[in-house]
Design a protein around this nucleic acid. Sequence first.
DNA 1: CGTCGAATTGATGTCATTCAACTACAGTGG
DNA 2: CCACTGTAGTTGAATGACATCAATTCGACG
Lengths: 204, 204
Amino acid sequence: MLRNPIDAPENSFGSYLSQIGGISEEDVENIKEGLRTKKVSKGDILVGIGDLCRHNFFVEKGLLRSYTIGEDGKEHVIQFAPENWFIVDRASVYFNDPSEVYIDAVEDSRIVLIDGDFMDRLAKLDGDYAKFNDRLLHNHIRHIHKRLNLLLGAPAEKRYLSFIEMYPNLLLRVPQWMIASYLGITPESLSRVRKELANKNFKV
Amino acid sequence: MLRNPIDAPENSFGSYLSQIGGISEEDVENIKEGLRTKKVSKGDILVGIGDLCRHNFFVEKGLLRSYTIGEDGKEHVIQFAPENWFIVDRASVYFNDPSEVYIDAVEDSRIVLIDGDFMDRLAKLDGDYAKFNDRLLHNHIRHIHKRLNLLLGAPAEKRYLSFIEMYPNLLLRVPQWMIASYLGITPESLSRVRKELANKNFKV
DNA sequence: CGTCGAATTGATGTCATTCAACTACAGTGG
DNA sequence: CCACTGTAGTTGAATGACATCAATTCGACG
């Protein structure tokens, strides 16, 4: 759930753990062999609705997304995950419930599969590391709350502007109809919002 | 974040910890003296926007809510917390950020104030207890995700029906305009939705 | 009894959706 | 190399859902 995509070195998950998670190089070495890295192609589905989602996915390179199919039969994008983000149906991993989302690859990607008790093993190495997962969870919550506020209050244009502000780097990587889906509007509406903004002389 | 209001015995937080949290009676005794219980009156504001939210609130009796003021100047209800629920701006407690929400009392209430590192102290008593907080966090996330889905996909009527299903006991306790605010619609619209449902011969 | 906020109702406006047509472009196979 | 096809994006006209504004009713409470 943290920002700043980087230029996708191999094993950026290791650097992430040590730099952002504050986990010693040594400990990273000790546990990382329990991890699998996987390459997926654009369009590949990693988790389907009804599956058990057994892993948390860390994106080293590329772009994943999660989405549901509403009762209206339409896709609703829940989250995008570019480099250095996690993506997962936490309820499914944690409670062993069938997944309520799809997770698929928007671009060819290289990802790290983190199994359910990876964090537990990490916590066993050093009690402080339990706090790392805690931080991830709190970040996640903060993030969804921001989104909730927008959906509750803001009209389409403001939601779009806020999306640009939060994910400036995704603007050119994600097709417009997916952004529309993330914003909770139709592609046509987003097209018109963009036109309006252009008329107002708005530059990204 | 768990259901089933009860008939508000004194110290229902203790029972909650032992029954739901699986924490031994003895350990509950050991730490509960660090907790304060407080009575608040309908309308009292516990946390204001900009304040530091220093506590997680557990509702033993009564009803709290959290809400923001959108840029449109309107209230948006984030969450209701009846008996046996927690309510908190987690980002504020965890990251020491100024609160982005108000928390106030919808009814006269008796609440337990849980300070930021209560869970840490609990975890120190018994390593397994760390998992309790983890479970709370995951429940919270699952809950907001459900909400996200509704806001993304469902029209007013479906959101209302889903609200009734999730919080049947709140229907009679929360004024209609607050429910409307929770659903992201105006009180007038909710009134019409209800009328429609009545015409369709819908019974709560 | 009078007042105030909550809820309903009607008239009207606005924003986003829907449906359909059209353009642009990328990928495929002849 | 070019036609064929499918998907993304744009645009227009009509519709629909919800908001807004204003008037009225209802009920709680001093």
